[in-house]
Simulated assay, not measured.
Amino acid sequence: MLRSVTRRTARVRLPIAGLAVALAATLTGCGLLGGDDEGAAPASGAGGLEKTKIKVGTIPVVDVAPLHYAIERGYFKEEGLEVETVVQPNGQAAVAGIMNGSLDITFSTYAATFTAQSQGVADFKIVADGLSAKANHLMVVATPNSPVKKATDLPGKKIAITAKNTFTDLAPMAVMKVQGIDYNEIDWIPMALPDMLGAMTKGDVDAAVVVEPFVTMAMKEAGAVPVLDAASGPTAELPMSGYIAVGGAGKFASSSPNTIAAFQRAMAKAHSESSDRTKMEPMFVKYARLDENTAKLVTISTYSTRLEANRIQRTANLLHEFGAIQAPLDVAPMIVSSPATG
């Protein structure tokens, strides 16, 4: 069960390569259709919700645990909002959903969002923050039989990543750059996250860049050891994901400011409680589909209560610094101002 689910997760978490092509196909095949008016409600002029029912795209990963927590705790209902989560098969489908109107908001990695934004695919707006990587959340790990014992051993070795120009290669490169390690000598090998453990065990790769819960799983199942913390130094607390919508005439991010504000307030309340393991671990088990023992060990990263342009800008700068996007990208116009926690 876990393996079949995590295979989907691996394809979703960092979907940079091919995203623009997939989104362009959506534009061509479906057009930029407006959302349906299910759950539409006239704005009262005094904060009334434009829509009382919205659909939010999700992926079975730890990043979205606070969203499910907010639903279960009734935080959206307190705002007069009903949220239906729609599990997406992959990141491309999730973003296509907000473009064709079948979804109002979707969870997405910032790497994928900023890549698509830089290519003019759509006018994406960030309506809520997701997860920022704490120490031990994004790691280069190796099995005990690997020739890689420390970060300086990485040049000249085969290192598994999900895809090039994603957090799994860009974040480690940023850390290695400040440590004076030549990352250009590394042979980056793209593969699905669930396949990395087997590849390391068989010696097909010398190390792998994994993200939680795969960090914990690699250590539990194969005695993997940390080689480099890719969320440290220049990438410490790196914003990795958020919730996005499409802006423009007739689009949800532009036509539903009161609904978005209600969504933000509920998410901020859930995020303010997310450091409590007793509240997040059941969400990991139920929605990220981890076993209880793994859920107890997973690093809980930072779920910010506010959208801050200067903080999220770090991720766009990282993509530009290492050539994942061709020109600097200003994140500030993409952000829909969010309220503080109550």
Rank of each mutant, 00 (worst) to 15 (best):
T6M: 13
R7W: 08
R8P: 04
R11G: 09
I16G: 06
V21Q: 15
A24N: 15
A24L: 14
G31F: 02
L32F: 05
G35L: 00
D36Q: 07
D37I: 06
E38V: 08
P42S: 00
G45V: 07
G45E: 11
K53I: 00
T58K: 04
P60W: 02
A65N: 13
P66M: 00
A70Y: 06
I71K: 02
I71Y: 04
E72V: 02
G74M: 03
E78Y: 00
E79Q: 12
E79F: 00
E79A: 05
L81F: 03
V83Y: 02
Q92I: 07
A94P: 03
A94D: 13
A94I: 14
V95M: 15
T113D: 08
F114T: 12
A116C: 10
Q117R: 06
Q119A: 09
G120A: 05
V127T: 05
A128L: 03
S132I: 04
S132G: 08
A133G: 11
A133E: 15
A135N: 12
H137Q: 11
H137W: 13
V141I: 15
T143R: 04
N145R: 15
S146V: 03
P147K: 09
D153F: 04
L154T: 03
L154G: 03
G156K: 09
A160G: 06
T162K: 04
N165Q: 10
T166C: 01
D169S: 00
M176I: 00
V178Y: 08
I181M: 02
P190L: 08
A192C: 01
L193S: 12
P194T: 02
D195S: 14
T201V: 12
D206Q: 01
A207H: 05
A207G: 02
A207L: 07
V211G: 08
T216R: 02
T216I: 06
E221D: 15
V225R: 12
L228N: 05
A231Y: 14
A231P: 12
G233E: 04
A236K: 05
L238S: 09
M240H: 10
A245F: 05
G247Q: 06
G247F: 05
G250L: 00
K251C: 03
K251Q: 09
F252R: 03
A253D: 04
I260L: 01
M267I: 08
A268P: 09
H271I: 06
S274L: 10
S275L: 11
S275R: 14
D276W: 15
R277C: 10
E281A: 07
F284E: 14
K286S: 09
L290R: 10
E292R: 15
N293H: 12
T294M: 07
A295P: 02
S301E: 15
R306P: 01
L307G: 01
E308R: 11
A309I: 09
I312Q: 14
I312H: 12
A316S: 13
A324K: 10
P328F: 00
L329P: 07
L329A: 07
D330G: 00
V331L: 07
I335G: 04
S338A: 06
S338F: 03
A340G: 06
